[in-house]
Amino acid sequence: MRVVVAPDSFKGSLTARDACAAIAAGVRRAAPAARVRAVPMADGGEGTLDCFLGARGGRRVEVAATDPLGRPVTARYGLSGEGTSAVVELAAASGLPLVEDVPPDPLGAATTGTGALVADAVRRGAREVLVCVGGSASTDGGAGLLSALGFRFLDASGAELPPGGAALARLAAIDDADVPAEVRATRFRVACDVTNPLTGPSGAAAVFGPQKGAAPAQVRELDAALTRFADVLADRYGVRVHDLPGAGAAGGACGGLAGALGAEPAPGAALVAAAVGLPAALAGADLVITGEGRVDGQSASGKVVSAVAALARERGVRAVALAGGVAGPLDGLHALGLTAAFSLADGPRALDELRSEAAPLLSALADQVVRLVL
């Protein structure tokens, strides 16, 4: 029996590599002679950098940056062995976990720290930069990131705007005279884990703002500010990002990068799958086991489970997802190719308990899945 193990991380519990180890152990208990291949996955959020470095090699570079509130922080990005390409996780300098110690500031939080990582990579010679935008703490449209690359966002009086998404409501002009030629010569791609547009009822502020502490009135304020930002980007660069699929990722950072730098949005899980060789690994497999912290109807929109299921279907491989929680309907995932999904919970359990015992529970569930398949 040939089994491919390709989960995302289980946030708060297991890295993708740890999840692979737990699932593989369960597979081998049920089928000691099975040939198991581990392919850790990510969707553009946390863990994407590890997947790329594990698959392609390279090194981590440490940079002094700022967190979403402007406080000093040390963050890392990945640089290829030859130094010509880089992978930057937005969450490394601009993620929610960095500001869990203070009350949220949804109007003023910014992505400036991520810009410091990108600027450092370009200075070192990277001319292809992949920005992985999951897990942000801000809704600034990527303006902070762009400001670290030399862009200036000005109000009607010519004064530079302060950090944060709310200030973009006063945006009158964009000055890019100080953007280095190296930045302009760099190809930017954005690994997205969602398909939301920048603005509107399914945009960055409306859908993700509350997760970052935004009250209903603040959501409306941020959406109006992002609309103004998108209007000015369209006037300045001729690129309309208001309703661009994926532009709403990471508080609109994808939209800002696409509008100002021509960045190319792409599904993060699909990018990772190609980089780590998942299509080749699935050739001739009998079963692929994927998973993540939660599987539900939204998982069909670019998450790891959906990418793995689609690739498995193309190759005639059964795909099963294991997750901390499973909530239907899963019609979208089944249509993509997912055979079934199962929850780790073996009875009533508190969330903290599930997280602390995720590895043995995942291993036991994989054991049962393989016995059923056999």
Results as ranks from 00 to 15, higher is better:
Gly47Phe: 07
Gly259Pro: 07
Ala341Phe: 08
Ala225Leu: 05
Pro40Ala: 08
Ala86Phe: 09
Gly246Gln: 04
Leu198Cys: 09
Tyr77Trp: 14
Phe153Gly: 05
Gly164Leu: 11
Val232Arg: 14
Asp235Ser: 12
Ala281Gly: 02
Ser299Tyr: 08
Ala173Lys: 08
Ala260Glu: 04
Gly200Lys: 09
Pro104Met: 09
Arg355Leu: 15
Glu100Gly: 15
Lys212Met: 10
Thr74Glu: 15
Pro197Tyr: 06
Thr290Ile: 03
Leu311Arg: 10
Leu271Lys: 01
Asp346Leu: 07
Asp243Ser: 07
Lys212Ala: 11
Arg315Pro: 10
Gly203Tyr: 13
Met1Asn: 06
Val179Ser: 09
Arg59Asn: 09
Val241Asn: 03
Arg228Lys: 07
Pro103Trp: 15
Ser85Lys: 04
Ala75Ser: 15
Ala173Val: 04
Ser363Met: 03
Val320Lys: 02
Arg228Gln: 12
Pro163Arg: 15
Asp18Trp: 00
Val99Thr: 13
Leu287Ser: 08
Ala204Lys: 06
Ala300Arg: 13
Pro97Arg: 12
Arg294Asn: 00
Arg71Ile: 10
Gly238Pro: 05
Arg2Phe: 10
Ala121Tyr: 02
Ala225Trp: 01
Ala93Arg: 04
Val36Ile: 03
Ala263Lys: 02
Ala93Val: 08
Gln368Val: 11
Asn196Phe: 04
Lys303Ser: 10
Leu130Gly: 00
Ala280Gly: 04
Ala159His: 13
Phe188Arg: 11
Leu145Arg: 05
Ala55Arg: 05
Val373Pro: 01
Gly12Ile: 07
Gly347Val: 01
Ala42Gln: 12
Ala263Asp: 07
Ser147Pro: 07
Thr74Gly: 14
Val39Trp: 06
